[in-house]
Design a protein around this nucleic acid. Structure first.
Lengths: 214, 214
DNA sequence: GGTGGTCTTTGACAGGGATCAAACACAAGT
DNA sequence: ACTTGTGTTTGATCCCTGTCAAAGACCACC
């Protein structure tokens, strides 16, 4: 089925899912499948395509020279990524779980400038929002902001299916997995959320959570 | 001369300075002058223009609900800013020192899409780079990365004229002014840099500094 | 050139997160 | 269902950075 970094393609038969404000992405496309940790593109490769997440999730990251990994963004179902400033990728992109992607070649006239512009500005805004989150002092505030962000993007404010590990979350928020875990536990102990396993989060008091980090 | 948030305009008579890869900005333009902390635009205002820094520097920031200020970017002489995702500004922009700006109205056909695209991608890249810096664990690494960035942008790898206070640097890097100051002192004690006053920095060992944070 | 005020530096102390370590839970495959 | 390995939680300790405080340096204005 899933074969590491190798991909297989098939055609979707169902109706097009929500594609936001990016009209060219609404066509039916072949879908590439990626296993967990499967590489989508690497730093230095030519950046000549965009990708829309059909299901699963993607981490975009960079490696520091000391070996640490900094995740710059996650992309969830329905979101589009792959646009970068130069001709080559400055980042790595990998699936965090079993993931399906639709690929759009930017050289085949499938992508017009106006749509690229929208995507670039969205990415810029998201990066700047992320700066605000990462530079927050408290670990709980970081995690809370992250959970609210994911909940909003998944369209369900009371239940979250995390598509990534504690390691991923830690590398995204700039803290260790132990601190991530402790923050989860603290939010649970305070009755703000309930955990059904590590990946399934139920937000019991969204308002209280928002108070902590907004 | 300088009058707070009020601005005066005059015409430059000298040759156009370097404007990078943004050709439309090379024309002679009237220049607005801003005093330190002079407001260029505020959050919520209509975003209908771009600005190029002729001299001085600009901080672009956001206010948290708890009153903390997060500086998202500095813009130095020769750099252009003001492009944002929505119709209204998501951020505040202020001069950090006595500053001269050239203004370009995006509704007057002065700005074409290709140039906007370049700017959007540059801003996206810078924001993503900034995430890498802010999420670094060590205060020294943050400051080192900041100094190298400024040195490169000012075109002199051995001498930096800081156009901002320790408060600004702290709010940009996500740390207190005390820690900023202690980090400067530590880099000085290690013989990596020399301080001629607080704002003038001489980088004695650029390679060693780069090793700390690259 | 003097002076006042702001910015910067340095010190002492405490708290939060990193680190090291180990027990525990869970998912995948046999 | 069992087992194995990975991912998660929890504990103990140390260090870095935030906080509070005060002295010192610098700049702008008079």
């Amino acid at each position: 089925m899933f074969a590491g970094t190798h991909t297989q393609t098939h055609h979707r038969s169902g109706p097009a899912i929500n594609s936001g404000a990016v009209p060219f992405l609404s066509r039916v496309r072949p879908i590439s499948l990626f296993a967990p940790d499967g590489e989508i593109y690497a730093q230095g490769e030519t950046a000549d395509a965009l990708y829309r997440v059909e299901f699963g999730a993607v981490r975009v990251y960079r490696l520091h020279t000391d070996g640490r990994r900094q995740i710059v963004a996650f992309y969830l179902a329905g979101e589009t990524f792959g646009l970068e400033a130069g001709r080559t990728h400055s980042f790595f992109a990998e699936a965090t779980v079993h993931t399906g992607l639709a690929r759009f070649s930017s050289f085949a006239g499938e992508v017009v400038t106006q749509e690229l512009m929208t995507l670039a500005l969205q990415s810029m805004l998201h990066a700047q929002e992320h700066i605000l989150v990462v530079s927050r002092q408290s670990a709980i505030e970081k995690l809370g902001a992250f959970l609210l962000d994911v909940a909003e993007r998944q369209g369900d404010l009371e239940h979250i299916d995390l598509q990534m590990t504690r390691v991923d979350i830690g590398e995204y928020l700039g803290m260790t997995i132990e601190t991530v875990s402790r923050s989860f536990s603290k939010l649970r102990d305070e009755g703000i959320l309930r955990l059904h396993g590590a990946k399934s989060v139920e937000i019991l008091q969204p308002a209280k959570l928002a108070l902590l980090c907004k």
